[in-house]
Simulated scan of single mutants.
Amino acid sequence: MNTTTLAQTRLGAKGPQSVSTIGLGAMGMSAMYGAADEAQSIATIHAALDAGINLIDTGDFYGMGHNEMLLGRALKGRRDEALVSVKFGAMRDPSAGWTGMDGRPAAVKNFLAYSLQRLGTDHIDIYRIARLDPNVPIEDTIGAIADMIKAGFVRHIGLSEVGVDTIQKAHAVHPITDLQIEYSLISRGPEAEIFPVLKQLGIGVTAYGVLSRGLLSGSRPTGPNDFRAHLPRFTGDNAAKNQQLVDVLQQLAAGLGATASQVAIAWVLARGKALGVDMVALVGSRTLKQLDESLGALKLTLGTEDLQRIEAALPADAVAGTRYGADQMAHLDSEK
């Protein structure tokens, strides 16, 4: 059982009311950043639960189902300690390629059936399509998940990487708990239009990429199987320019008696409060050491002057390169 109580927030007006302000993103435990150690992954999930982290995020396409099965094994006997958030809809091929999105109502129920089996659970706490399917009205997709809530298989509905118009259409069909979207010191796009609408509608945020996939912590791609090797911010001249930002952040962090990762996480949480948005920061810790460092962010209190100094040193437009390649950026409804 939990040995620690972390700071908690509600996740949207109609969502879970006691969610740890740090959540665990499990994607990296299934090959996206290169090989991962299963025993270490399960130990990290258990340590997160012990520390009071109760939100764990996965996707049915992470490792083509591997991530859900891993999480199912880790949660055996501890399912009631976790709020499980699942993304669905992204289709893969046998060579691990990406072949599009499927948000049709029949597909929603099919994806859900397989997720429940792999996770070894009778319900999913928050269910969301990973990206907007341009061929299916969002109202149809949300309506299908709402049917699954009535049937008892899902508790809440979330969204992922969608813009204002889609958020409003979805919320009109069924209350949306939260929007999962990339948000960090160097990815601040949602502040202008998306966050104000979420605040107005009472929708929370689960922020992923709070370390910009490790860029802000000084982490670099480990090889060709690390998907960051194909991201603009980690390649060519951009990598050298962005290293300068990391150096600045590390200097600021040293002055605060913290690491760059801890400052980046603490900034996201402080900024959420300042904007009046229910904010949970997802950390992609794959090891006990990384988890311990991430939890240290909760001991760091950033005052107004700290935030101003950090934001002046790392202005929103300072990063070189987009957060995904051109192909994927074109599919992000949140960027339109």
Rank of each mutant, 00 (worst) to 15 (best):
S41N: 14
A144H: 09
H171A: 05
R104S: 15
A264C: 07
L211R: 03
L295I: 01
L282W: 04
A260W: 01
N67L: 10
R271Y: 07
A207K: 05
D50K: 08
D327H: 12
I149A: 02
M29H: 05
T222E: 10
R104G: 00
A36S: 15
I124W: 01
W267P: 05
L71C: 08
F61V: 08
S30F: 10
G152A: 01
V280L: 07
E191C: 10
L6M: 06
Q168V: 05
G303T: 04
L179Q: 06
L159R: 03
K150M: 02
R309S: 13
Q328L: 12
R286Q: 13
L256I: 00
T121C: 14
H171R: 07
V86H: 01
I22P: 06
H66R: 12
A26I: 12
H66Q: 11
A239T: 00
L300R: 07
G97P: 13
G276L: 12
P94V: 07
K336Q: 14
L132Q: 12
F195V: 13
T5W: 00
R78C: 06
S217W: 03
L159Y: 04
V84G: 08
A51M: 08
A144N: 04
L300D: 04
Q168M: 13
I126Q: 06
D140K: 13
A326Y: 09
G303E: 09
L11G: 04
V164E: 11
T21I: 15
P16M: 03
L245D: 09
G163K: 09
P16A: 00
K273E: 15
D333H: 02
T166H: 01
Q251W: 00
N2E: 12
A35P: 13
K336T: 14
L295G: 09
M148A: 14
M64T: 11
T166Y: 07
G23H: 02
G103P: 08
G12V: 04
G52A: 05
I138W: 09
F234I: 03
Y183E: 04
Q244S: 06
T5K: 15
L314T: 08
L119A: 02
A26V: 15
D50I: 05
P190H: 06
A318N: 01
K14R: 15
I42R: 10
G296N: 06
M279Y: 00
S217D: 10
A51L: 07
T21S: 11
Q290V: 02
S41G: 11
I142L: 01
F227P: 02
I56L: 15
T206L: 10
G65Q: 06
A47R: 15
A26G: 01
L112W: 11
L231E: 13
I186Q: 03
R286I: 03
M329F: 05
Q262E: 12
V173G: 05
L198V: 01
P221I: 03
T5S: 14
D278L: 10
F234D: 09
F227L: 11
L49K: 10
A36N: 11
V162F: 09
R78G: 06
M1G: 13
E139M: 03
